[in-house]
Amino acid sequence: MSKRTSEAARARIAAQREAYRKQEQRRRITMVVTVAVVAVVAVGIGWWSIAQSRSEDLAGNLSPVTVQSNGTVVMAKPGVTGPVVDIYEDYQCPACRQMEETSGATLKNLAAEGKAKVVYHMITIFGQEPTKGNSLRASSAARCIADGDKWLAYHEKLYKNQPSETVNGFSLDDLVKWGKEVGVTDSGFESCVRGQQKAAEHQEYSNKILSTQKITGTPTVMVDGKPLESNTAFVPSALRDAIVNAAKG
């Protein structure tokens, strides 16, 4: 190979190396930019999700709360008949506690705004111990409260003190104590709780609901008889939209 030929070959190799170096540089820049964009989008989606799932603040006074003869509890302003929002819950159900913490304020606000009639149905969906016994004790104790406002405060207290699904909880002593803490003054409350006087009617109501309604788990939220998807019930903004839109339809 002549000197001129070898110089030309070296020049081509150098040019190829330079072109490859620039190509690799562009690839790295593209990769960095892509990763940055994906990260920004992910952060944006994360913030959007947080914003969408953020609980509402209670806007003001609650609407009247009334305990019905069958043990259900209605929260609605006088004259408001719909949309009817039926909430099927179990005090031992962790997802029910989560929904109360996330969407409970939305339900209270909608009722106070006159945009919904909210009906609480406490049932026992568990069939094994200790969860069944825990649920029965809590629900029958709540049925010992006739005052709607005190019932609602007790409802929240029970969720805040929900036991693990693997232990015996909701002891009779605690159920009595928590009632007094939320202001229950009825002289018959303690004996009603300790004697579990409402346990049989609670179990009868649970059996009726589970046999007549399409309840496959708790919590179940229905708007005018139509079940909502769980991801709607757990997202306050979506829950509000679903209920408000039901009134328009």
Rank of each mutant, 00 (worst) to 15 (best):
Met222Ala: 15
Thr232Asn: 06
Ala238Tyr: 13
Ser206Cys: 10
Ala242Phe: 13
Glu204Ile: 09
Ile215Gly: 06
Thr218His: 05
Leu239Asn: 00
Ser211Tyr: 00
Lys214Cys: 10
Phe234Gln: 12
Ser237Leu: 03
Ala233His: 05
Lys226Gly: 14
Ser206Gln: 09
Leu228Asn: 04
Gly217Met: 14
Leu228Ala: 03
Ser237Ala: 09
Lys198Glu: 04
Ile215Gln: 03
Gln213Gly: 09
Ala242Gln: 06
Thr232Phe: 00
Ser230Gln: 13
Pro219Ala: 04
Thr232Met: 11
Val221Thr: 00
Gln213Asn: 13
Thr232Pro: 01
Tyr205Gln: 01
Ile215Asn: 10
Asn245Gln: 15
Thr218Pro: 14
Ala233Gly: 11
Gly225Tyr: 08
Val235Phe: 07
Ser230Pro: 06
Thr232Leu: 13
Ala238Gly: 11
Pro227Trp: 06
Pro236Ala: 09
Ala246Leu: 13
Thr212Met: 06
Ala200Arg: 14
Lys226Tyr: 14
Lys198Tyr: 00
Thr232Cys: 12
Thr220Asn: 06
Ala246Pro: 03
Lys208Tyr: 06
Pro236Glu: 05
Thr212Gln: 10
Ser237Cys: 07
Val223Cys: 08
Thr216Lys: 13
Val223Ser: 08
Thr212His: 05
Thr212Arg: 07
Ala247Gly: 13
Thr218Ile: 12
Ala199Asp: 06
Asp241Gln: 14
Pro219Tyr: 02
Ala233Arg: 05
Ser211Arg: 10
His202Gln: 11
Phe234Cys: 01
Gly217Asp: 14
Ala242Asn: 05
Ser206Asp: 08
Pro236His: 07
Gly225Leu: 01
Lys214Asn: 13
Ala246Glu: 09
Val235Gly: 14
Val223Trp: 11
Ile209His: 09
Ser230Cys: 04
Ala200Gly: 11
Ile209Asn: 12
Asn231Tyr: 01
Gly225Cys: 02
Thr220Tyr: 03
Val221Leu: 05
Arg240Asp: 01
Ala238Leu: 15
Gly225Thr: 01
Glu229Asp: 14
Ala247Thr: 12
Tyr205Val: 00
Lys198His: 05
Leu239Asp: 00
Ala242Ile: 02
Lys208Asn: 15
Lys198Val: 00
Gln203Val: 12
Arg240Ser: 02
Leu239Trp: 08
Leu228Phe: 00
Val221Trp: 00
Tyr205Thr: 02
Asn231His: 02
Lys198Phe: 04
Gly225Trp: 08
Ala199Leu: 04
Ala199Val: 07
Thr232Glu: 04
Ala200Lys: 10
Leu228Trp: 01
Met222Asn: 09
Leu239Arg: 02
Ile215Lys: 08
Asn245Cys: 02
Thr232Gly: 09
Thr220His: 02
Ile243Glu: 03
Thr220Glu: 03
Ala199Ser: 11
Val235Cys: 12
Glu204Arg: 10
Asn207Thr: 12
Ser230Ile: 07
Gly225His: 06
Ser237His: 03
Glu201Tyr: 13
Ala238Trp: 15
Glu229Ile: 01
Glu201Arg: 14
Val223Glu: 03
Lys214Thr: 11
Thr212Val: 01
Ala242Ser: 11
Asp241Cys: 08
Ile209Ser: 05
Asn207Arg: 12
Ile215Asp: 08
Glu229Trp: 03
Lys214Ser: 11
Tyr205Asn: 02
Ala238Gln: 09
Val235Lys: 14
Ser211Trp: 00
Ala238Glu: 15
Gly225Ile: 04
Asn207Cys: 11
Thr216Gly: 10
Leu239Cys: 01
Val221Asp: 01
Ser211Val: 14
Met222Lys: 15
Thr212Phe: 02
Ile215Pro: 09
Lys226Phe: 12
